[in-house]
Structures are given as structure tokens and as C-alpha cells.
Computed example of a mutant assay.
Amino acid sequence: MTDGTTQPKPPRPPRRKRVVLADSRAPVTVLRTVLELEEQTSWAEEVVRGFIRTQFWTAVKLALLVIGTLGALPLVFFLAPGLSGVTVVGVPLPWILLGIVPFPLLFGLAYWYNVLAERHERDFVDMVEK
């Protein structure tokens, strides 16, 4: 008995995907370097350690920049007490500099760190692949 409606077709199974563990067209030096990284040889450990060190010191430098910038603001208001009486649109200047300005500053530095970290990663991958 048909009522004029069609039955939905059963979904097709997903197509099989070929997974290649090693590209046979890759240069031998790339494969050797990747193999050394996977086997964690002393050279590979030093390369990875250098990469981690670079990432760490980038983070430390930017953290010191944030601490120095935000830590200097209270010192500025202490050394120049006249700035505490300045108002911008009815809001005291210290409130603006300590309550609003840090957020765009932190966002900008976080974005800058992300750009630097990605550059370090690209440099690392380029070094490994050569």
C-alpha cells in the first residue's frame, strides 16, 4: 500500500580515507629529522628544549612589560599627585588609567604574544623540515 510518499534512503557509510604515515616523496633528511624527534635523541631533545626556551623567554619578556607598565602607573600618581585631581568627562584620570586602559593593553599584548609564538613554531617546523 503506497500513500504517495517516498521512504528516506538509508545514509551511506562514510567514504574510507587513506591515512599515510610517511610521505615517500619527502626528502630523506626530513624523514631522518622527524625520526630523531620521535625517538627523542639527544639532538632532538636539545632542539625541542631550545624551542621551549624561546617560547618561555618570549612570555617572560611580555609579562615583564605588562608588570612594568601597570606597576608604573601607581608610582606615577605617587610622584605626581596633581594628576589625581584631573578628570576626563567627569571621571578621575586614575580610574581611567587603572580601570579601563589595562584591558586593551592586555588584549594587545596577548595578541602580540600569539603572533610571536606562531612565528617561533613556524621557524621550528621550518628548521625541522630542512
Rank of each mutant, 00 (worst) to 15 (best):
V101D: 01
S84M: 07
L37Q: 07
E118W: 08
E39T: 13
K61F: 13
Y111E: 14
G85P: 01
V86T: 05
P81E: 03
W95D: 00
I96K: 02
K61R: 13
I100S: 07
T33D: 12
L83F: 12
L109I: 14
L106H: 00
D123S: 11
R122A: 14
A59T: 13
V48E: 09
V125R: 10
H120K: 08
L106A: 02
L83M: 03
E36L: 06
T58L: 14
I96F: 00
A80R: 05
I67W: 13
V125A: 09
T33N: 15
R119V: 05
S42R: 15
T41L: 02
K61W: 10
S42W: 09
I67K: 12
V76W: 01
G71T: 05
S84E: 09
G85H: 02
V76G: 01
E38F: 05
T41F: 01
L97P: 00
V30K: 15
E45V: 07
E38D: 10
D126N: 14
T58C: 14
P74R: 11
L35Q: 12
P102Q: 04
V30H: 13
L35I: 06
F107D: 03
T41H: 01
E39V: 11
A72K: 04
R53I: 10
E129I: 09
P102G: 03
L37C: 05
Q40A: 15
P104C: 00
L97T: 06
V115W: 10
W57R: 14
A80I: 08
Q40Y: 12
L116N: 08
E118R: 13
V101A: 08
L70G: 04
I100F: 07
P74A: 10
Q40M: 12
E118L: 14
K61Q: 11
P81Q: 04
L65N: 07
F56N: 02
R53C: 11
V101S: 02
F77T: 04
V60M: 07
E46P: 03
A110H: 06
A26E: 07
E129W: 11
L65I: 12
V101R: 00
E129S: 15
S84C: 07
R119Q: 08
Q40R: 15
M127Q: 09
L64G: 08
V101K: 02
V91T: 08
R119Y: 00
L105G: 05
T54F: 03
L98M: 12
L83I: 02
T54H: 05
P81H: 00
